[in-house]
């Protein structure tokens, strides 16, 4: 019965003359960053069977900044990214992309469409596809079923893919299956997939795990060069790496922010020394 009521209510909604039908609304509204903040995370709570993975977490990321998230294993870094990208529902709190996009009411593809790209902790590329195809699939294009069926690569898109292949150093491997790449190369390919999608905000989870020192250095260079035009949030355990790229570091501990500041400030923070760096020393 209530289903029927819902239906009539929806029907009435459709007949309203003072507003445009939802499917005719312009979908892509520009992200409003007039306050220089691109990501607002406020009062985020999430518990798994009573275990508080996120505990009243507050985080603000400025537009164009490169932010490092550090914290012990299980601090909630990956879970935070899951919530931001729509993979996991939180219990309470708000997440806004710019001032106008409430991310909590959007699905993963919608969030991706808004311009939030993600690199997973475990490299996830499409192994049965070539390097080139992996990049093609990641292009910023209309991702509907019909447009995808009829899609043809434009010269601009080809140039973009070539450019990214150059950046990630996989030019030689462009027609190789992604599954045949080394671990480090897969990490790079996944970063490349992020780059071709031209996101506003990149969430990068442990990018240098399994990379050689040299590869790590190149990753650091790449991420630093991305900041400015893009906003980058990097989760990393490798303190050497964090020191080499970070301007602002946020320390997570048991699902909430413990400290925030430059690397030096954070390292000299009493709480941090106690719970995190203290353990290492």
């Amino acid at each position: 019965m209530s289903a029927l009521e819902n239906l009539t209510a929806e029907g009435k909604e459709l007949l309203r003359r003072d507003q445009v039908w939802p499917f005719l609304m312009p979908k892509q509204q520009a992200v409003d960053v007039s306050h220089q903040v691109i990501l607002y995370v406020e009062g985020l709570n999430l518990s798994f069977d009573g275990f508080k993975a996120l505990n009243d977490l507050n985080l603000y990321i400025n537009d164009g900044e490169l932010r490092c998230l550090i914290g012990a294993n299980g601090a909630g870094k990956t879970t935070l990214m899951d919530v931001i990208t729509g993979k996991t529902q939180c219990d309470s709190g708000t997440v806004y992309f710019g001032q106008n996009h409430n991310l909590l009411e959007r699905s993963e593809p919608e969030i991706a469409e808004l311009g939030i790209g993600r690199k997973f902790q475990k490299p996830t590329v499409f192994e049965a596809h070539t390097v080139f195809d992996n990049l093609e699939l990641s292009l910023k294009t209309n991702k509907g079923v019909m447009p995808t069926l009829l899609a043809r690569l434009t010269p601009t898109q080809l140039d973009r893919i070539d450019q990214v292949l150059e950046i990630i150093g996989l030019k030689e491997q462009r027609f190789m299956l992604a599954g045949a790449l080394s671990h480090g190369q897969k990490q790079w390919l996944e970063i490349g997939m992020l780059l071709v999608s031209e996101p506003r905000l990149l969430l990068i989870d442990e990018p240098v795990a399994g990379m050689t020192a040299q590869e790590t250095e190149r990753t650091a260079e790449l991420l630093t060069s991305l900041a400015g035009e893009h906003t980058v949030i990097v989760v990393e355990h490798d303190m050497e790496f964090v020191r080499s790229i970070a301007r602002t570091v946020t320390v997570l501990h048991q699902g909430s922010v413990l400290a925030e500041g430059t690397m030096d400030q954070v390292q000299n923070n009493k709480d941090v020394i106690e719970v995190y760096l203290g353990e290492e020393a």
Binding site: S107, E108, A112, F126
Partner: peptide, 18 residues
């Protein structure tokens, strides 16, 4: 290609916006 991508990593494909 998207279909094969869904087969091998549906979550990944979603995060790409499909």
């Amino acid at each position: 290609k998207v279909v094969v991508a869904i087969r091998d990593g549906e979550a990944r494909a979603r995060f790409l916006g499909y």
